[in-house]
Design a protein around this nucleic acid. Structure first.
Lengths: 109, 109
DNA sequence: CAAACATATGAGCAATTATTCATATGAAAG
DNA sequence: CTTTCATATGAATAATTGCTCATATGTTTG
């Protein structure tokens, strides 16, 4: 007879947030889970930058960077402002900085 | 003539961690970027659990759960101990809890 | 030692996704 | 109003990855 877990299961089930929320949480971290996007966020850590500066920094196509910036913006991780022809991107809020900093701590110990 | 970014670029380049580290950081978050793994980590939030309890909780194959637990363990996000036939998994360190909590904050505001 | 239980693992398939390429939009300059 | 610069976007491709299925490993019990 396989062993029983009803005690633990009932307890954990009560604590576990709704599926939809956990899905959103996964989707959020999925966005952090790409080197290009991490580099972009790290680059914007201190100051705003325009798209072509970012592509130059990363040695990547303007198109590729634009695609990723859109992903980041949709997730409210970066924001943008227009100044004439150029568009400047910057970090949307401090959660982004803190999450990255924590991740950094984890891998560098 | 395209506009120049040498000032910003020099500054940011100096601040940016090495590629390898940023890659590792992305790889770490990639692991948080899956609903199943998020659920597992959340379930282990308070207490340890054995593999079959986790699969029962998530309504997933033991095999699928085992595969994900391996991923989590390789990344030092969970640890395990054996007690007879069963193996209990638990959260490896507090970074995991904090990172999830921060992600939660970000999406629920 | 054989049977039952708990977990791990390898190969394969299906789905997701990051980049590229071509092109579109939008703004300033001449 | 045409050209140039800056950015955005859609479609297609290549690579990654989560799950399934079959099977292996490890542990206890009879």
């Amino acid at each position: 007879m396989p062993h029983d877990h009803s005690n633990i299961l009932n307890h954990v089930k009560a604590e576990l947030p709704k599926d939809e929320l956990l899905q959103d949480l996964g989707d959020l971290f999925k966005i952090f889970g790409d080197t290009t996007r991490i580099k972009i966020m790290y680059a914007l850590h201190e100051d705003e930058m325009c798209v072509c500066a970012i592509s130059e920094l990363l040695g990547m196509t303007q198109s590729a960077v634009s695609h990723q910036l859109k992903t980041l913006k949709t997730a409210n991780l970066v924001k943008s402002r227009r100044d004439g022809k150029t568009i400047y991107y910057s970090i949307a809020d401090d959660h982004v900085r803190t999450i990255i900093a924590l991740g950094f701590e984890h891998i560098t110990e």
